[in-house]
Design a protein around this nucleic acid. Structure first.
Lengths: 204, 204
DNA sequence: GCGCCCGTATGACAGATGTCATCGGGAACC
DNA sequence: GGTTCCCGATGACATCTGTCATACGGGCGC
């Protein structure tokens, strides 16, 4: 066997991260050479240790897993990325694939799969969880225009129209137009329902 | 040394669960004798294997960790419970303590802590993450009456008043009164803001 | 060049929501 | 027995939202 695959493991939950390090450490052909608890750390450590594969949690403080993957594509070409996530939203998968991610797994996958996927990605292959892939295909593309998505995102935490208008530098009337069309496009009962749907789909 | 502490580990994320099993398995005085991926499974397995300590994820399909803890208190007295969670809401801690839970940890704790807490709980002691405890104290009690909380919960997913009224078997006017008073009590801008606040606090 | 869509805006209108006053019944506490 | 709170309800009013028509400038594709 050649030298082991050098792996970075990034997850903000210490308990999970150290447990996963244990788990991957059992594989003789894998070596976890770096750990990180935030997106920024992940980026820095990956570059510093020139890792072969980065295993990134999707939700982390600072830049999320996909943002880190985008950066890595430029700063450490040839480094494979595997994204691991608790909440599989269809839109995330698409974003991840666009960022050059080649492995995408929910945390509900069995443990043996992770090591296999790391190897596969290192060898240049791809692995996307079949169920998430199916969801992504079923969900399709976002019907929202970029501006509609912006406004809907600002509306997502329950802010009134005037506040959204101010934060988006729009007239209140325009905001209502965007929200209205978003509600119609998403088949929602109101803006909050629409925001919930869009969030579930990973569109905002 | 006496016989090892018999532990149940329940988490719906396979990756995490098996990794944690590995981790706890390294401790000579701990034996993970059962695993579960749902609340119902956790309850059944805990009783079946008569475990000493149950380590439960807070969010699981079916009954959540605290609900399982409540059941266990009646069905398997003497069994210690440790709750582990990603999202620490102040209200959860209070609910957990009320259910007789003696260990409460965020998943960001270091790995060594978990084993220690399992031992401590088994010995009859308590351990609550200091940061979560501080948050819980700062957050205080819910100012909402039970009915206000019910209605706010139904409102949380963006349903219109009429639907909430129907689901709560109330008149629409009454629903609006409850929502209004909840909004005032929580200092929110509108019902959605109020729902978000209440959820963040773990009050609904 | 001509259409088409996006971004932005205004005005108008119906319906939903937030607020307030007020009512009555019941449970708890002193 | 009185006070206080929660539950449930109604009516009125002001405001906020959702919807629609309409307008204009800027890209993009053909």
């Amino acid at each position: 066997m050649t030298s082991p695959i050098r792996v970075l493991l990034a997850d903000d939950e210490n308990l999970i991260r150290t447990a996963l390090v244990q788990l991957l450490g059992l594989e003789p052909d894998l070596a976890v050479v770096a750990e990180a608890a935030t997106g920024d750390e992940a980026l820095a450590m990956a570059v510093k240790h020139a890792v072969d594969v980065a295993v990134l949690d999707l939700q982390m403080p600072g830049p999320d897993g996909i943002a880190v993957a985008e950066q890595l594509a430029g700063r450490l070409p040839g480094c494979g990325v595997v994204i691991v996530t608790s909440h599989g939203r269809p839109g995330h998968l698409k974003r991840a694939l666009g960022a050059g991610v080649r492995g995408f797994l929910p945390k509900t996958t069995s443990a043996v799969t992770l090591a296999e996927v790391v190897r596969k990605v290192h060898a240049g292959g791809r692995h996307v969880d079949p169920e998430l892939a199916a969801e992504a295909i079923a969900a399709g593309d976002s019907p929202l225009t970029p501006r509609e998505a912006d406004v809907l995102e600002l509306a997502a935490d329950g802010a009134p129209v005037d506040e959204i208008a101010e934060r988006a530098a729009l007239s209140p009337g325009t905001v209502r137009n965007y929200l209205s069309s978003a509600v119609i496009k998403l088949g929602a009962a109101n803006r909050h329902d629409a925001a919930a749907t869009a969030r579930r789909m990973g569109w905002i």
